[in-house]
Design a protein around this nucleic acid. Structure first.
Lengths: 115, 115
DNA sequence: CTTCAACCTGGAGCGCGCTCCAGGTCAACC
DNA sequence: GGTTGACCTGGAGCGCGCTCCAGGTTGAAG
């Protein structure tokens, strides 16, 4: 059980972003205290860490929503979810290759300044 | 000498983006025909390829503008320009490490679906 | 019991990097 | 000379992903 600030600290998202993710339905069924304050479980946290991973690798929020919606539908969507992640992983590989290539160009450019 | 569409094709930027880059002063002194149409030189093209590299590695446009402005000031800014690129390259290294780390997480998650 | 930082809501606003549009001009080809 | 597609300008608009704000509530510490 984590307070909002603790969940923010552990996930790397801001409080506003956590509220935003709940508002758009990415993070569903977040618990509340009797006073109306959010309480994040370990399960919520592991979702947030997955979202962190997907965001850091450039997945659009709309696609994360699709993934989360599939997961909520139940076990029978496991194949779809796997395929979604696989397609994303392939895009990430392409992104890494491009980044490496452009990094090499950049280093070459810098070497030019060193002479 | 390249027509706008050719410059777009070779640089990977859209026509609108080329015009936009000129408008904000990132790309300066682009030549024109008597009729007012842009003519891109090899020099313009190599600038565009550098911008492509910097954008692909996540440099904000404002910083590319700073770099371009320094270059226009003359040779005496070479050290500043080199330092700017070096700082950027270090950020890119960090970005590559993060991307690799999150890619590994993603692959692990996918492996979980395979069992 | 008081205080005060952390939290709540709904909704507006923002920064970035383009992208699109209207309404016109240019120039190569038939 | 007419057609057509590439190009021009200034300015508005957009998609994304938050971020901020006002005005109010909660709850742990002293």
């Amino acid at each position: 059980m984590y307070a909002p600030s603790e969940a923010a600290r552990r996930s790397g998202f801001s409080l506003d972003t956590l509220r935003y993710y709940e508002k758009i339905g990415l993070l569903a069924d977040v618990g509340r205290t009797s006073g109306g304050r959010r309480v994040f479980t370990d399960d919520d946290l592991s979702w947030l860490l997955l979202f962190r991973c997907l965001r850091d690798t450039g997945m659009p929020i709309a696609e994360m929503c699709r993934y989360a919606a599939l997961a909520r539908e139940g076990e029978h969507t496991a194949d779809d979810r796997q395929a979604l992640l696989e397609r994303h992983a392939e895009r990430v590989e392409e992104q890494m290759r491009l980044l490496q290539r452009q990094y090499d160009h950049l280093r070459e450019k810098i070497r030019f300044y060193e002479t």
